[in-house]
């Protein structure tokens, strides 16, 4: 009897951006269909790289990534669009088109994947209702709150009715109340449709508040993984989840040296907790460091 393959399988996955900078280091993880998984970690811990390996924005240097039994690593370039139609991707910055209304943002994405006008007319209201934003269908993105924009981004990720939804820091730009709303919405999608959901976040407060499997990432490795109750009291890294860990991150030492050279006061500021500028996150561009608790 052949054992059933997990829905998402990472097997000793390594990603090297250069000789000295690694994104992932021997990451192995299995995710079952219908799971809700938190990828928890600080900036530079490898969460985004993990998601990018799944979407094939990044190709792993070694190891194997499989989705529903099929190798993602070995996909040819022409096959990547098909892979992406099997998943919904919610980018960190919402990625909404500012000159298009809410419904047009969804319609545009649907037309781009070959849906007909009839499909668009039928599906857009349903999706907007599903993410509770139908009442703002005619608004432009700049007229929406952060939470509403995130709902639209989630709605757009659902246009292909995907069995897998990947969200990169979906609460990163939101206040606590809106963060809860968005996570509630993701859980609702998970419960109602059995959609497998993987959320990358650094927001420990949100993770502690909601159920789901936690995968704690650090320096491109998985430090611990399990349900919250399994991780209580274990060496899961959640208790010492503090900004100071960034200082220890060997992946970022090269960047630190450069920053120290550029700004002699940086080290003093860092020790005193003044972390306003600059960003140390290689994945998130100019994103500022945020408090972790």
């Amino acid at each position: 009897m052949v054992a059933q393959q997990p829905y998402v399988l990472f097997d000793r996955v390594e990603v090297k951006y250069s000789e000295t900078v690694s994104g992932l280091r021997s990451v192995s993880l299995e995710i079952e269909k219908g799971d809700f998984v938190w990828l928890l970690g600080q900036s530079g811990s490898g969460k985004s790289t993990f998601l990018k390996c799944l979407t094939r924005e990044v190709k792993n240097t070694s190891g194997s990534v499989k989705l529903d039994g099929r190798s993602v690593t070995d996909l040819k370039r022409d096959e990547i669009p098909h892979l992406r139609r099997q998943m919904g991707i919610v980018p960190q910055d919402f990625g909404l088109l500012p000159n298009k209304k809410v419904w047009e943002n969804l319609a545009y994405a649907m037309r781009a994947v070959g849906k007909t006008r009839r499909d668009v007319r039928r599906m857009v209201p349903l999706i907007l209702e599903r993410v509770n934003i139908l009442h703002r269908a005619d608004a432009f993105p700049n007229e929406l709150s952060g939470g509403e924009q995130q709902r639209v981004a989630i709605g757009r990720a659902l246009i292909n009715n995907p069995p897998l939804l990947l969200a990169d820091e979906p609460t990163g730009n939101l206040d606590t109340a809106h963060s809860r709303e968005i996570i509630d919405l993701l859980f609702e999608i998970n419960r109602q449709h059995g959609t497998t959901i993987v959320v990358a976040t650094h927001d420990l407060m949100v993770v502690r508040e909601f159920p789901g499997r936690i995968v704690n990432m650090e320096f491109g490795r998985i430090r611990a993984a399990g349900e919250p109750d399994e991780m209580d009291g274990s060496d899961d890294g959640l208790d010492d989840f503090e900004p100071v860990q960034v200082r220890k991150n060997p992946l970022l030492q090269e960047e630190d040296s450069r920053l120290l050279a550029d700004d002699p006061d940086f080290e003093d500021d860092f020790e005193s907790g003044n972390r306003g500028e600059p960003s140390l996150n290689p994945d998130s561009g100019d994103e500022k460091e945020r408090p972790y608790a």
Binding site: R77, P81, G114, A157
Partner: peptide, 17 residues
């Protein structure tokens, strides 16, 4: 570039992009 990024994210093929 925004549109291209969105198209690629939602799985539009290269022909459409």
């Amino acid at each position: 570039r925004r549109e291209i990024r969105i198209m690629e994210l939602v799985g539009a093929n290269r022909f459409m992009v």
